[in-house]
Design a protein around this nucleic acid. Structure first.
Lengths: 193, 193
DNA sequence: AATAAATGTCACATTTATGAGTCATTTGCG
DNA sequence: CGCAAATGACTCATAAATGTGACATTTATT
């Protein structure tokens, strides 16, 4: 056990593969192993060495992404006591884990109410419940446009992250501007003071 | 030639297949012919009767969707002389052809600058150019937040359509609310007075 | 330089997707 | 009803994607 991982350490490649798979699957949910391997800069055979089959890889992506998002979002939620600040920090957290967040969102969009309820998924429900509470409070205070429904605002929140990702991938919006642009736009879209 | 098309008229089935393919491909760009057929409520064999191969079907989807979007967006652009009204009507037009618009957007996101430049694609460039002019005018007038860049606003415009589609598909936002919610939110997101 | 780990290359079996032919059945119409 | 168009059900051939094994090559560590 070294204090620093080797560059060719297996766990590094493993993480790299999951990361590449998330990017590929986020853009094309039927992406082939070949495409994922190419994106990760390895051979298809290497992917098969780390994951028995395609489904295993996909499942690992789901678990890992859920874990990452739950952690980041929970930290953001606990970063303050003021709903407006909490919401803003949760937005930034979602932006930071952009593609992961988008992946998790799609995950729950498709398999809604499967019987695959595990700890991570329950934790995600908690995160979502906390988010809903925040928006409810802000709306009751009149800080958020009362004409908009909370489910709509939830869709907006996730959708704005996707817009930020797309803008970044398209490359036509300066990378440094994206964070401020997207928060400004999200704030405006819900009429937040 | 009857004034009313038969229910089993070929062109009806053909249109139905294209429509189903657009929905399927919009959600999974690698959707199989089987999935598309299922979505259209026909057999895979039927799809093959109308389109020689998968690529032909995809190409036809692109052409048809481009045509539909160009028409609707151009009509909306020409519906007024006031930039703010024109923009609003273009937004509604994009919403009306929601999935088609989203499809076309993805189309141009991937194959940017291919050599497949045909009439429809040139027309799309015109539509886009007109849209840009509107936003530029509004921003110079101070009617739109000057801190936001126009490419960002363009991404927002298309992204808001996607959010509306998702909200509708998820079913957690009342169908009648979606039009007003999304315009309200888009307006707010760009700081439009 | 020697060693071990990690990855690449090739070869092959299995599965899945695609495209197309044939014939029976359904559907809308006169 | 009876006709003709449209579709479904079944079939097969080919192509693409997946999963594995054996071995060569590269890479990092000692």
């Amino acid at each position: 056990m070294s204090h620093l991982r080797y560059l060719c350490d297996m766990s590094v490649t493993r993480d790299k593969l999951i990361e590449a798979a998330v990017v590929a699957l986020n853009q094309d949910e039927s992406a082939t192993i070949e495409q994922i391997a190419t994106m990760a800069g390895v051979t298809r055979r290497t992917v098969h060495r780390y994951f028995n089959d395609r489904n295993t890889l996909v499942q690992e992506c789901k678990q890992t992404m859920l874990q990452v998002c739950n952690l980041k979002m929970t930290q953001a939620y606990q970063s303050s006591q003021q709903p407006a600040i909490q919401l803003e920090n949760m937005f930034y957290a979602a932006l930071e884990v952009g593609i992961q967040y988008s992946f998790v969102k799609k995950l729950f969009k498709r398999n809604q109410y499967t019987n695959l309820v595990n700890n991570q998924e329950r934790a995600y429900d908690d995160v979502k419940a906390n988010w809903f509470k925040l928006v409810e409070i802000l709306q009751q205070q009149g800080a958020i446009d009362k004409k908009l429904s909370i489910p709509w605002i939830y869709n907006l929140f996730g959708g704005m992250v996707d817009i930020a990702i797309e803008a970044q991938q398209a490359g036509d919006v300066a990378r440094n501007d994206i964070k401020s642009f997207s928060w400004t736009s999200f704030k405006g879209s819900i009429g937040l003071q």
